[in-house]
Amino acid sequence: MSTVTDSPKTPTTKGGKPRLSDRAKAEQRLGWKLAMPAFVVMLLVTAYPILQAVWNSFFNYRLTDPANKEFVGLNNYIVSFSDSVFWSAMWATVIITIITVVVELVLGFIIALVMHRIVLPRRTLRTVVLIPYSIITVVSGFTWLFMYQTDTGFVNRWTNWIPGVSDNYDWFGSFWPSIFVICLSEIWKTTPFMSLLLLAGLAQVDSSMEEAAKVDGASWVQVLYKVILPNMKPAIMVALLFRTLDAFRIFDNIFIMTGGANGTNSLSGLIYRQTIDRTEIGLGSALSVILFLCVLVIAAVFVRGFKVDLTQGRN
């Protein structure tokens, strides 16, 4: 990654000449001089820790007992993959990712559509919708936690007419209700980002195509599926990729709401527990590498499988 000369030269409108003039060479040098500090710092603060994690993952290593650090090969990975705790965390992470991303896509699209079409409180709506984005996730987690707690909350008192919900129904007593509330907080906090990305996509849809379809007698459902959505596909895919990777790293809401009880711990939560609570650096590192690889796989699936071009428009 650090070898500059090996990187593929992107063909651009300017400077496509095969031989570089002195001026172009000077520009190359200046370009790297300006870009280098940010690039190097960025690599140092991320590449170094992940390489350290890869290295540590091959050792049986507790921070409290550094004298007994010993090389164990892939043992930490084998331990991880054969432990039900790992699979439970993986399951919770995948479930939360799927639920939040799907709900946010639908909800985010509806909000984007309203923001796109609305005339009257246009600015107010856009401002209000943006607010949760700026709220600290931990704050959102506490707010939703207290909302659903049986004693301090109000949700039970508002919804006790629904069959199965009584005044003292414990939302955090089992897996699915806990996941439901965790997802609610996550959705509340991150839908604004999703809907803004989708709004940007909507703005790119040529309105004359919509008009033409309407003139040809298409219903609004047909316009939506045949005109709007296909033209928004790049924006939708980018939004999905961003949110999927973000959701897969979920930590804050779970830590605040359940602390990982009832099988709600995520992969990130598991890493935290192994590293900080149990100071099992070796095992924690192996789990970190696994999480990192999961994120890489998800990104690769989106970029290769769905042909998401993230650098579109950049040269």
Binding site: N56, F251, Y272, Q274, S288, V289, L291, V295
Partner: peptide, 15 residues
């Protein structure tokens, strides 16, 4: 890097 799971950095940094 922005997709990087930050928790994965916690273990090495903590050490």
């Amino acid at each position: 890097v922005s997709f990087f799971p930050v928790v994965a950095m916690v273990t090495p940094l903590f050490e």
